[in-house]
Design a binder for these strands. Structure first.
Length: 210
DNA sequence: TGCCAGGCCCTCTTTAGGGCCTT
């Protein structure tokens, strides 16, 4: 069984699909054991209007979307690309809402569980001055992935952040390579309880190594 | 009529308020 994790990032016309915002671009990076093994990226045309503010923020214009493939087609391809892999995003409450909303409009189900690199970074790097993706990338000196606020660059950055945190858990807490289930359990712990819980998780592996 | 995200987390807290984070 594959241990792949799908790291996703959406660019959108606004903050919430409940208020009519639509996705304009999606990118997904497949990670296995902290290594990128595949990528998916596409603009998507939903007919929604892109405001000048969003065009300035993302570089994505109404003109660019006019010739983009239909949103439903892109989302069906994205769902096939992800398959059964569990998912990760930075501030996953945002991207998971668009994943569910856009797939619903495409007539597809969205059963995937989302882990969140922002919640995880608050547990693993509580001392970081900011937990925005850009600030964390600079704080951890992650390699540049391209223009911020484009989907593939941000998905690659989130993937690099995830891989760094998985490595950090291995080295700092003597854990075996942490999979999606452990990440989900860690992000559900309070910040105050995270270190103690991680120490408990490490104990069996330390005993096994003796 | 007026307003419009929402979950997490800290603190001047828990019968609450406000900043962070995503576009």
């Amino acid at each position: 069984m594959s241990s792949a994790i799908a790291v996703i990032d959406f660019e959108t016309t606004g903050m919430s699909p409940a208020q009519g915002a639509r996705a304009t671009e999606v990118a997904i990076v497949l990670l296995e054991q902290g290594r990128v093994v595949d990528r998916f990226q596409s603009l998507m045309h939903s007919g929604a209007w892109v405001s000048p503010f969003i065009t300035q923020l993302t570089g994505i214009s109404n003109e660019m979307l006019r010739t983009a493939p239909p949103a439903a087609q892109v989302m069906r391809e994205a769902a096939r690309f992800v398959g059964q892999a569990p998912m990760v995003a930075h501030n996953a409450s945002f991207d998971s809402k668009f994943w569910q909303a856009e797939l619903a409009l495409a007539g597809e189900s969205a059963p995937q569980l989302f882990a969140c690199t922002m919640l995880l970074s608050r547990r693993i790097y509580p001392q970081a001055p900011s937990h925005s993706l850009g600030h964390l990338a600079r704080y951890l000196q992650l390699p540049s992935t391209g223009r911020a606020h484009r989907a593939l660059a941000d998905a690659e950055m989130a993937a690099a952040l995830l891989a760094r945190m998985q490595q950090e858990l291995c080295t700092r807490h003597a854990l075996p390579w942490p999979g999606h289930e452990l990440l989900m359990q860690l992000q559900r712990r309070s910040r105050a309880a995270a270190d103690g819980w991680l120490a408990q998780q490490a104990a069996p592996s330390l005993l096994a190594a003796r």
